[in-house]
Every structure is written in structure tokens, then in C-alpha cells.
Design a protein around this nucleic acid. Structure first.
Length: 261
DNA sequence: ATGCCTTATTTCATAAGA
């Protein structure tokens, strides 16, 4: 069994990001790549150029918003779209897709934003996280080597936002959201915290506005939750901050995790 | 920060993002 490199990246439109995505696949050489916020229909996903780089793709996408994928060049089996008893807003959205890749159960997730704590979208977010917990709980006995990666839209601790005072009363930092993450960890999952790309914080998201990236006004909301069997194999994990730079970036940076043989 | 971007679409305006 060779080293396996698994990555997650909220691309904020796979169409707008296609040249960067293809360059990134070639330069970073992930064996498995979880993508979020495709913002295309399944038909419009760039299957051909991704295939040309050696990847199979499990895509769950429905058009204007959302959309997730698992790309793999080490096998793509048992593809599962969505969650068990998945809640909707009001209809279920395309926010989760799973596949077994080289013996590891991999799930790409895009957790609802929540908007504000008094918005119906926030209740939906908590329901969605609970459905994720139930789905994983049902699956883990069959798949002890599991990892769920993606844009969780929750900063696990105050250290995961640049200025906690700015987030008082906001989503992404509330006790209920953090409790939902703790409930996932209670399934036996470990938060694989990446090395920062630069500076003291392993942030993965910076707003496009106000020069937030250059001021490091960021958040760690793209997370890797690994079962014990996967966490024990982690040899490195880092934020690919370089991929947030330059012209036409996503507002998220990839997180890249290497698993030892 | 409170839209100081960026995206897609029902496009010269809106909804959404976090």
C-alpha cells in the first residue's frame, strides 16, 4: 500500500476555477480530492479534463449553488449521494457524496451556512449536521477506515477565527454548532488540524473583501474528520495557502493530508 | 468586514456566501 494523499477544496464554482483546479491537480498530485461548491449541474461538471488527468469522479450537483464531488485515481467504489434522512431547505440539496477509494471511505461535505442564528437556515444547518452524524454512525461499523472532509462552515474553537470578538452573535462559532462537531468526534473521529501554510493560524478561508487574505483575517472551517484507523496513518496535513494567492482564486484554500502506507 | 468581492442567473439587479 502506497502513501495516499487526500485533499479537500471548496472551489467556489468549478467552472470559474477549472484552469486552477487542473493546475492544482497536476502540481499537488492528490490521489483523492474532495470538492465543494461546484455551482454547476452534474452534466456541466468538467468530466473530460478531470478524466484526462487520471481521475474518476463521483459528482452530486444540482446547478446554481452547492454541489460536491470526490475525485479519485485509486479507485471509486460504493458511491453514495446525500445523507440518510437528509433534511432540506425545503428540499434536500447536493451537499454530500461518499465513495470508497483505495480502501478508505471518503465523504465530501458542504455544510449549510446558517446565515444568522435566528434564520431558518441555521436550524437547517444543525439538522443537517445531525443527519451527517447519524449517517456516519450507521456507516462506521462497516467502514472503520473513514474520513469526512469538506467545508463544515463551523470554526471548532475561538483559535480558529482571526478575532473572536468580531464573531459574537454570528454563525460558525455558536455553542450549538460546536456541539454538533463534538458529536461527530464522539463517533470516534479526530479533527486532523493542518499545519498553517504561513503564519500562526491554519486558516482555510478568507473573505474576498477588504484585503482579508493579506491581513490574515481568516477562519479554519474546512475540516478533516478521520476515524482512528485513518488518523493513525496521517503523516502530514497542511493548508495549501499558495492556492489562495494570485488572480482568480477561490476564497478557500485546499487542505492536503498524507496517509502513510 | 456587515459588503470594501465573487459567483450564477430569472443579468444593467438579485441572492448567496461566512
Amino acid at each position: 500500500m502506497a502513501r495516499v494523499r487526500i485533499a479537500t477544496w471548496n472551489v467556489n464554482s468549478v467552472s470559474a476555477r477549472l484552469p486552477r483546479l487542473l493546475d492544482w491537480l497536476e502540481s499537488r498530485q492528490p490521489d483523492v480530492a474532495c470538492l465543494q461548491e461546484l455551482k454547476v449541474s452534474e452534466d456541466a461538471f468538467p468530466h473530460l479534463p478531470v478524466q484526462a488527468l487520471g481521475y474518476q469522479a463521483a459528482v452530486h450537483a444540482d446547478g446554481r449553488w452547492n454541489g460536491v464531488a470526490v475525485l479519485s485515481r485509486i479507485g471509486l467504489d460504493e458511491v453514495s449521494r446525500g445523507l440518510d434522512a437528509e433534511p432540506g431547505f425545503p428540499e434536500p440539496e447536493t451537499r454530500a457524496v461518499a465513495a470508497t477509494c483505495g480502501g478508505v471511505r471518503v465523504r465530501s461535505v458542504y455544510v449549510p451556512n446558517g446565515r444568522t442564528p435566528d434564520d431558518p437556515h441555521y436550524a437547517y444547518k444543525l439538522q443537517w449536521l445531525e443527519a451527517l452524524r447519524r449517517t456516519l454512525g450507521a456507516e462506521l461499523p462497516r467502514h472503520p477506515a473513514s474520513v469526512v472532509l469538506g467545508d463544515f462552515n463551523v470554526a471548532p474553537t475561538d483559535a480558529d477565527v482571526w478575532d473572536p470578538a468580531k464573531f459574537v452573535g454570528s454563525t460558525h462559532v455558536t455553542d450549538a454548532e460546536r456541539a454538533a462537531l463534538a458529536a461527530l468526534r464522539d463517533l470516534g473521529l479526530t479533527d486532523v488540524i493542518p499545519r498553517p501554510g504561513k503564519g500562526p493560524h491554519p486558516f482555510t478561508y478568507w473573505d474576498y473583501r477588504a484585503g482579508a487574505f493579506h491581513q490574515d483575517w481568516g477562519m479554519r472551517i474546512d475540516l478533516v474528520y478521520a476515524s482512528a484507523a485513518v488518523a493513525a496513518r496521517v503523516s502530514d496535513a497542511w493548508v495549501d495557502r499558495e492556492s489562495r494567492k494570485g488572480k482568480g482564486p477561490s476564497d478557500h484554500a485546499p487542505v492536503i493530508v498524507d496517509l502513510a502506507p
